[in-house]
Structures are given as structure tokens and as C-alpha cells.
Design a protein around this nucleic acid. Structure first.
Length: 238
DNA sequence: AACTTATCCAACCGCCGCTAC
DNA sequence: AGTAGCGGCGGTTGGATAAGT
């Protein structure tokens, strides 16, 4: 293992401590539980192994598909992805991705890139009504940068700091609508807005959809109402 | 059977943002 | 404003095990 394995005795001590004092206050847990472990180890052991309702074993096909879709949209936001998979931990999802999916999808991307380079088949999605040329489109793999939370617009936002900001392209917006049963609720002057009005951001020359998602741990089930969208078609398409 | 290589995954590490002082 | 302490997160490590030779 990556460190010293937990013993059954340590597990019991930690479990009893959490049952008695509750989660949180991790800095006190080692002392209260009588464990010679750091706060982080205790927290990790609880979250990834001892916590009730943790689902173990192989990932089902629908879970795998969901991970792929969410990773495409969210990037390496393992805790967010795991939050949509009841019983799965961020560590589980991360490990599964690193062991299984990254290689599998890496091969697929390589093949797609080869086809692109060879001009065999155009697979890069084009922004709606865009006047951009194919040459001006960046590789698709670069379309999923998670914009840093430090974006000025986000900093100005008075909403919870637990919101994450990311961008997806229009194809994924359609994918979300169709496969995750999310409806775009309004359209005003070509700008789609969700439950809450959000600013329109523009990244370079790309048309985009902005997604805001709450990352609190309470969202352990499908609750896509937490997601809000706003779409910026950009100057190139207006 | 013995050895090597690949894979899996629990645990650790370092960083970040938030809060309180 | 600066800083220390905390919870939380993602990346990485390395031991256990399986598969291959």
C-alpha cells in the first residue's frame, strides 16, 4: 500500500469515535479515538472505507458511462463525479479512471486524432452558426478546461464559493439535455439561462456554455437542479 | 516452480481555500 | 493585512496480487 495499512482494531476505534462524536473536527479524532494517525488519515479512512453505505466491487456499465460523461464535462473533479454515484467514493472513481478508463479512452482519443490528422473523417464538433474555420478550432481535448475559480467574474459572484465553474461546448450541452434530462429553461437573445441568472463569460473566440455546479457533499444523488447553465454564443455567432 | 511484469487500490503528500484571530 | 489551523481535494506512491513467461 501507499502507507501503513489500517488494522481491524484501528478501524473499530475510528468507527466508535465517529459514531460517538460525529463527523468533522478531524483534528480531534486521533486523540479522541486513541489512534496514532494523523487527522487526514482518519478522515480518509472513514470517507473511503468505514462510512456506511459505501458500495464496493466492480462498477456497473451505467456507472462507467456516467463517469465518462461526467469526466468529459467536469474534468478531474473526482469528488463531484463521485457525488453523482451513490455509494462510490472519490478515491474509487479516481482509481477506476486511472486504472481502466484513462487508458481505454486515451487509445480512443489517439485513434480519433489520427483520423483527424489524416483527414479521414471530420469529428470535431463545430459551434453552432460559427464562422470559424476548421483550422481555427482547437483540438477537442482542449475544450474542457475547467476555468479556475479565481476568474474575476466568479470572484465577484456573491454566491457560495463552493460553486465550480467550467465550460462545455454545445454538443455536450445537447448531450446533457438529452441524456441527463436537463432542460434549458429560458432563452433570451440567444443566451440560455438556468435557474439563476449568471453572467455571460467569453473565453477567447469560442462559443461556449457555462455550467455552474454546487459541490457540497450533500448532493449524493441525482440532483441536477443544482446545475445552472448559461450559454454564450459569442460574437462570432450572433 | 520460480521469476518478471502488469495491474489494482489504500494510503500518503502537498496544495488550496476558508475561517478565526 | 497577515497568519495559523483546519477541512477538503487531486496527484502520487508503493505493497499486494494476478497474469504472463
Amino acid at each position: 500500500m501507499g502507507g501503513v495499512a489500517w488494522t481491524e482494531e484501528e478501524d473499530q476505534l475510528l468507527k466508535k469515535c465517529i459514531e460517538r462524536y460525529g463527523e468533522g473536527k478531524w483534528h480531534r479524532v486521533p486523540l479522541l479515538a486513541g489512534l496514532n494517525r494523523c487527522r487526514k488519515s482518519c478522515r480518509l479512512r472513514w470517507l473511503n472505507y468505514l462510512r456506511p453505505n459505501i458500495k464496493r466491487g466492480c462498477f456497473a456499465e451505467d456507472e462507467v458511462q456516467l463517469i465518462i460523461k461526467l469526466h468529459k464535462l467536469l474534468g478531474n473533479k473526482w469528488s463531484l463525479i463521485a457525488g453523482r454515484l451513490p455509494g462510490r467514493t472519490a478515491n474509487d472513481v479516481k482509481n477506476y479512471w486511472n486504472c481502466h478508463l484513462s487508458k481505454k479512452l486515451g487509445v480512443q482519443e489517439t485513434e480519433e486524432k489520427y483520423r483527424r490528422d489524416m483527414n479521414v473523417e471530420s469529428i470535431a464538433p463545430q459551434p453552432a452558426q460559427s464562422t470559424e474555420t476548421a483550422d481555427s478550432i482547437e483540438p477537442r481535448t482542449q475544450d474542457y478546461h475547467v476555468a479556475p475559480n479565481s476568474l474575476p467574474a466568479i470572484q465577484e459572484r456573491s454566491m457560495s464559493t463552493a460553486f465550480n465553474f467550467m465550460r462545455v461546448d454545445q454538443q455536450d450541452h445537447e448531450l446533457l439535455k438529452e441524456e441527463m434530462d436537463i432542460g434549458v429553461q429560458e432563452q433570451v437573445d440567444g443566451v440560455f439561462v438556468g435557474d439563476l441568472a449568471t453572467e455571460v463569460h467569453q473565453f477567447g473566440q469560442f462559443d461556449e456554455v457555462n455550467v455552474l455546479g454546487r459541490s457540497d457533499e450533500g448532493c449524493s444523488q441525482w440532483d441536477w437542479d443544482d446545475l445552472m447553465f448559461d450559454m454564450d454564443y459569442g460574437p462570432n455567432s450572433l
